[in-house]
């Protein structure tokens, strides 16, 4: 009876008691979720277009953030450092296509996956050799003042991050749906052979998706980096994006966004209201539990394509 109370009644009474606090918890969850979404988005782009499960997406976030901080530490103005880092990410896409994807064309997915594990180590290593491994402060001049709306404490930085993420997703949606190249990308994601038959050059498409994923990684890197410093642990948020992908479906862009938000909000609420019952630190494993439940009941995720066994 006591257990029932702790698990199923008390948390909801707590929520009802302090709605303003609940709102703050939800908002902070949304903002963490936006970050997860951004990383998951990079995964989905690459997975859709090339069927490659890119283990190195987290390392790309770290690498982008390290490059940006490195350039700024050397006195490069913010705007130039941003352009420079974006250029580095595009160059990286060219190199990845040339030395990793092209030689492995037509190989099993698992082999490409292993290659991205190699890429993961390489990027973390190179990033830290080039720019050092100490924790760095990233300040790109995003305002960071707190203010109150209706008793709820908000932070300018968090709002800004959410806005940037929304704009990014909007731009990507237009890019995919309205442009010729977006159509070519969707075609490649749908059927490689048919795409080749209509003359879509796969290699060019790969460079483009890895570039876009690189830019998305840069945006994620800026947000996380500015919030909690640029450090090795940035690449670990990639692990959190795995449950996001399971929730959202590996091939769905809206899925990546909504999955990220659900996990972000879910783990914050779980931590605050159910944490005491479990002795705390739920935030660390809640996402994986949720993913496990999804794997059992809806393996294709919320928005993923239905998996229908061919017989």
């Amino acid at each position: 009876m006591d257990l029932m109370n702790i698990l199923f009644i008390a948390p909801f009474l707590d929520m009802a008691d302090a709605p303003v606090f609940l709102a703050e918890v939800v908002i902070s969850g949304v903002l963490t979720g936006v970050m997860y979404s951004l990383v998951a988005l990079g995964f989905v782009l690459i997975f859709k277009a090339s069927g490659v499960f890119n283990f190195a997406q987290g390392a790309m976030v770290l690498f982008a953030a390290l490059t940006l901080v490195g350039l700024m530490e050397r006195g490069v103005p913010v705007w130039l450092a941003l352009i420079g880092t974006a250029a580095v990410m595009v160059a990286l896409a060219f190199v990845i296509e040339r030395v990793m994807l092209r030689p492995l064309i037509n190989q099993e997915g698992i082999i490409l996956f292993m290659a991205t594990i190699g890429l993961d180590f390489l990027l973390q290593g190179v990033g830290q050799i080039a720019w050092g491994s100490n924790v760095k402060v990233l300040n790109v001049g995003i305002p960071n003042k707190s203010f109150e709306v209706g008793g709820i404490l908000l932070n300018e930085f968090d709002l800004f991050a959410a806005l940037i993420a929304a704009v990014l997703v909007g731009v990507l949606a237009v890019f995919f749906q309205k442009t010729a190249i977006g159509r070519a990308l969707r075609a490649v994601a749908d059927d490689h052979q048919a795409a080749l038959a209509v003359g879509i050059p796969l290699t060019t498409i790969w460079v483009i998706v890895w570039s876009v994923a690189g830019i998305v990684a840069l945006v994620a890197g800026i947000m996380w980096g500015a919030k909690s410093g640029v450090q090795f642990s940035l690449s670990l948020i990639a692990l959190k994006s795995l449950p996001v992908l399971i929730l959202g479906g590996f091939t769905s862009i809206p899925g990546a966004i909504i999955g990220g938000l659900i996990i972000g909000v879910g783990e914050k609420i779980a931590e605050i209201y159910w944490g005491p019952a479990f002795g705390g630190a739920i935030e660390g494993w809640f996402a994986y539990m949720l993913a496990l439940v999804f794997l059992l009941f809806r393996p294709q995720g919320l928005f993923g394509e239905r998996i229908i066994e061919r017989v």
């Binding site: 159509r183 969707r186 075609a187 749908d190 059927d191 052979q193 048919a194 795409a195 038959a197 394509e305």
Partner: peptide, 12 residues
């Protein structure tokens, strides 16, 4: 060309 087992972009 066209294919024996239709190869269209099914989602489009």
């Amino acid at each position: 060309r066209t294919f024996q087992n239709i190869a269209l972009f099914k989602g489009m």
